[in-house]
Design a protein around this nucleic acid. Sequence first.
RNA 1: GGCCUCGUAGUUCAAUGGAUAGAAUAGAAGUUUCCUAAACUUUAGAUGCAAGUUCGAUUCUUGCCGAGGCUACCA
Length: 593
Amino acid sequence: MDLQHILQQKIQEVVLKEYEVELPAVEFQPTRKDFEGDVTVVVFPMLRFVKGNPVQIGERIGAFLKEEVDQVTDYNVVKGFLNLVISDAFYLRFFNTVKSEAQYGWVPQGPEAIMVEYSSPNTNKPLHLGHIRNNLLGYSVAEILKAAGKKVYKTQIINDRGIHICKSMLAWQRFGNGETPQSTGLKGDKLVGNYYVAFDKAYKEEVAEMTAKGMDGNLAEKEAPILQEAQQMLQRWEAGDTEVVDLWKKMNGWVYEGFELTYKNLGVDFDTLYYESDTYLLGKEFVREGLEKEVFFKKEDGSVWCDLTEEGLDEKIVLRSDGTAVYMTQDIGTAIQRVKDHPDINGMVYTVGNEQDYHFKVLFLILKKLGFSWAERLYHLSYGMVDLPSGKMKSREGTVVDADDLMAEMTRTAAEISEELGKLEEYTLEEKQELYQMIGLGALKYYILKVDPKKRILFNPEESVDFQGNTGPFIQYTYARIQSILRKADEMGIDHTAMVEVEQLHAKEKELLKQLQLFPETIQAAATNYSPALVANYIYELVKEFNSFYQQVSILGEVDETKRQFRVALSKKVGEVIKLGFGLLGIQVPVRM
RNA sequence: GGCCUCGUAGUUCAAUGGAUAGAAUAGAAGUUUCCUAAACUUUAGAUGCAAGUUCGAUUCUUGCCGAGGCUACCA
């Protein structure tokens, strides 16, 4: 039984004895640094049950606990806060039980499986900074859920179908002169993206020409020939026209090769993939079924809708009048397909930007209306957009921070800083390059993940991402220092594997142990809140605590052998937790830097 | 117009309804004969405005102000 339960039981016991009241639950919190103590009992909430002065009640409980509970060595009461001092022996016992746990903080996998969808780009343009946030969040949440005992399938829906890819295809046909990634040396996704921009340019020119001739702007936007041609292309595609399908396969293939490289550099992966082109038909099937069940209704023009006015929402289209599928159609199909493929799924997480909050609200509602039980367990992991000082990123207008470019630049900055410090003389070029990438990406990933997912991020490319302070490299650096200590400890022949039997803890050691103790509950909280930021903040606190300890306390230079062994073992454990925690964020840690 | 998010030091981020609102960065001042100074220590600086609920509100409710988004037969 853990300490909190013991304390709660004892507090309930003493309150019953002294005040003849049954107390439901007790509120605990870590004692704030400015006060003496380790665990704080908040007395205020008890006032609802116990009549009296909070300070007096605190005093009585404190005196009782000090008497009755071994681990409580002292107490003090400030206003309505009862601060308990917990014995060193308690923290040492805790350390001895976890010191050799390889995956401290992890919960064994249960039967429940969750599918986490992330990334899901359109296949007509390269990935940008917004996708990076998406990928990092999705990957990290998946890892956190695993650590919290869930079986996880990582997946993405590849939006390989639709008007957007037809635009790139059409532009390539018109202006491409048979260019390929091989012939141009461009990454496939970049090449295809260029044609998407080319389409937009041609389209705008046509619209401008038409309005110059006196046509209404809105009408021109609808009737521009190149757009109409793209729309016809989509219909030909849905009809299975071989010429269109072949081109579509070829150009999508280019894009996938490009994406693969970006994912590899970013360090994310997927267990299964879904293609919209495979699932939209299933979606259509369920639209038909929904019509029969009268979940949907048909308008005179043949388009199919779902009436959500009773739920306080609008009517939503699920099939166009020309019979082609819309976004919603394929999402219905995809969800159903996934559960068919993985019957153990008991929930899905969709990592998609908050601009689609409404879409997912509607999607989840429709799936419920269609009668799927698992529809109750869907979660939209909604995150804020990454905006530039100039506003929203728009691929068509070329105002994007490209994912590959940004990663390369972060690596370059890491290299510059590192070269300046010049600590890596013995490293080979490859080793250095690998390290620079680790640090550069660490900075970028931490920068993005430490922020609450809900919040919008304003990214200023002019001001580079920090490498000092509350940053990824700061934490990586601390890890590297710990590894250095461990290497030296090995050379000195210090045995840090034995049971720790020191008599008394240094204040800094105690703080570190308290922080270590919080790791498992941090993982749980991160899982229930789908928030990697909680893990990032936890690791930062741990690292700050360690650096302070490192500064004030001599580790290898300690003369007392048991203390020295303990400090080495403690450093090792802190290093392990840093590595585990950063692993949950998808960030690697170096043995030197 | 309706609906949804978000407003915290100059800037970037924290704070299950709890104590004197924490950090980082930029600013000022220090710490290398000693385990990696990408570090440590000290210093100054913030809850958009107004009510309400509460013993207690950055957190919950309402109104206003400000930023962004959705409200497409685009995805």
